[in-house]
Write a protein that binds this DNA or RNA. Sequence first.
DNA 1: TAAAATTTGAAACATTATAACATTTACAGG
DNA 2: CCTGTAAATGTTATAATGTTTCAAATTTTA
Lengths: 163, 163
Amino acid sequence: MSARAIPYRPHNHDACVSQALTDARAICQRQNARLTPIRERVLELIWQSHKPLGAYDVLAELSSDGHNAAPPTVYRALDFLQQHGLVHRIASLNAFIGCTHAGEHHTGMFLICRACGNVLELTAPAVSTEVGKAASEEGFRAENTTLEIAGLCPRCQAEPDHD
Amino acid sequence: MSARAIPYRPHNHDACVSQALTDARAICQRQNARLTPIRERVLELIWQSHKPLGAYDVLAELSSDGHNAAPPTVYRALDFLQQHGLVHRIASLNAFIGCTHAGEHHTGMFLICRACGNVLELTAPAVSTEVGKAASEEGFRAENTTLEIAGLCPRCQAEPDHD
DNA sequence: TAAAATTTGAAACATTATAACATTTACAGG
DNA sequence: CCTGTAAATGTTATAATGTTTCAAATTTTA
């Protein structure tokens, strides 16, 4: 590596969020999808950091907004956002994270730091290629790939307990 | 592909099970681990088919054995079996499946048929290599890989609703 | 505007997993 | 053979995650 990826270095995270929201609006418009206030708010909450957020964490944030939501509200919004490629679900954590490649056609690979909790989403074409090969050697038609790597991010290899 | 993998063709599944149990006994002995009756029974239940089984499914089977078990019993047994490489947890399904490479040092890749539910575990060194490369290009120290592919197995591409 | 479709609200419930503490069992050392 | 210790299991309760169902409101379409 040369420079560290965004989640692993200090940055103006508000810019991440507002860029994500801007992108999301454009993407939804192109797809004739309705980015309603609830959906946009959930997306914004998911983007609060580069750490995945659980559905019930989102729920709690909505509550402290004064919005008295029930679980289905959150799960619906998350489903919508997933369907439109705006967030990803991290199966190994039962949690959600903003997609950093929204709009691009991609298969995400997630590097999950077990120390600080930050997640970096990558697009690794070589990995996808090999996965596709391995599947088709078995006659398997791959439709959806879950690829999550737990380990230590660069910062946490140096010193523990980063944000 | 040439011949279909085991889960995708008729076979004497009892042989799978008894082989798995035999292997498990040997592995536990080598590791000075105690494959107690409960643990062995849970392993046997997990191996009932090539479909992953949920913890509460295991619990139900134990109950119909006459064994009045509670959730912790099952989760403990599953933890033990995972720790010794005898079963894998499929994160995208919250379910468990017998490891078909027990004893071998490996990183599993799972092909999960959405139609019949069967799961094939592969070892794909080329995939592992590329995953490792992608991670280290980001300075990330990979420790644990979750790789689960949902799609259609060869049988279910031809005709739906296989066992 | 009226009908249809989508979105949201709300209550109940289902599923998956863990915490905490008591009891029993296996086993090594005296 | 006892006996202390660690490992495994039992038991109860509860936490965390996710879904079903039906009603009400809102938006879109005709």
